[in-house]
């Protein structure tokens, strides 16, 4: 009788899959950083009701939230080279970019940043708006500039509100990066797929890769608890 699982194959596939971990983490962390910028910018545009930009950013947020991530990855992967090529041939712009050598990792990073940025936009906006009006007034009354007010008073308070949400989205993003193999990025999922077809042991490699995702997410959750505690330290009622 055949075994349910080839345990040896399962165990041996771990180190091979883990070698691609930097790709998965790199795309997740990289897109988190870029999307924080996108999210913050679009949130501030919305809060300060900047004309024109406001319309563009709500169009962006609405489009991203209303279309599947998979479709967005394809749009970026197929769309951007075409757009660059169009500009090169029609206008002679962007000539120093060779669309044939852009790594698929770059498109993946871009697609995830665009996607996460739209979701963060709403989270960041509501976190900033949840800060008590009196904090803004006190900052203005003592003469802080708008930038100082935001950086020193409002953002730190908004951050402690937003962290649980940001954390959940980051964890979702880590798991969503498993989609990137469709555009030829070999992340841990892509590596698992390759190993699986080589040894005809798909069940084993997918068990291995799911355990790896699971462990990453547990580690990230633990880190988030620490970060949240630190960001909220001023909310404790008890004297330390």
């Amino acid at each position: 009788m055949e075994n349910l699982l080839d345990i040896h194959f399962l165990i041996e596939s771990f180190p091979a899959i883990v070698t691609r971990l930097p790709i998965t983490i790199g795309i997740a962390v990289g897109s988190l950083i870029i999307s924080l910028f996108i999210g913050l910018t679009t949130a501030l545009i919305k809060i300060y009701r900047v004309p024109v930009l406001k319309t563009i950013s709500s169009f962006y947020v609405s489009f991203v939230r209303g279309t599947p991530l998979l479709v967005q990855i394809y749009l970026v992967f197929y769309g951007i080279p075409k757009v660059i090529y169009f500009f090169q041939t029609e206008y002679g712009w962007l000539l120093n970019i060779d669309v044939n050598i852009i790594a698929p990792e770059v498109y993946a990073l871009l697609a995830f940043s665009i996607n996460l940025g739209a979701y963060l936009s709403e989270t960041i906006r509501s976190a900033i708006e949840s800060v008590d009006r009196g904090q803004f007034e006190a900052a203005k009354a003592i003469g802080l500039s708008p930038t100082q007010m935001m950086l020193k008073i409002i953002f730190p308070q908004a951050l402690s509100v937003a962290i649980p949400n940001l954390g959940n989205m980051f964890i979702s993003t880590i798991k969503d990066t498993s989609l990137v193999f469709i555009i030829g990025v070999i992340d841990i999922m892509g590596q698992a797929k390759i190993l699986g077809s080589r040894g005809l042991a798909f069940f084993e490699v997918y068990i291995a890769v799911s355990i790896i995702y699971w462990i990453i997410c547990i580690i990230v959750e633990r880190l988030l608890v620490i970060v949240e505690k630190r960001a909220r330290r001023y909310e404790r009622g008890v004297v330390s």
């Binding site: 008590d132 009196g134 904090q135 006190a138 009354a141 003592i142 003469g143 008073i153 001023y234």
Partner: peptide, 16 residues
């Protein structure tokens, strides 16, 4: 604003 200092009903101390 620089020539005035304000004390608020709700204190409005910077919580962070």
């Amino acid at each position: 604003r620089l020539s005035t200092g304000m004390v608020f009903q709700q204190y409005n101390l910077f919580k962070n």
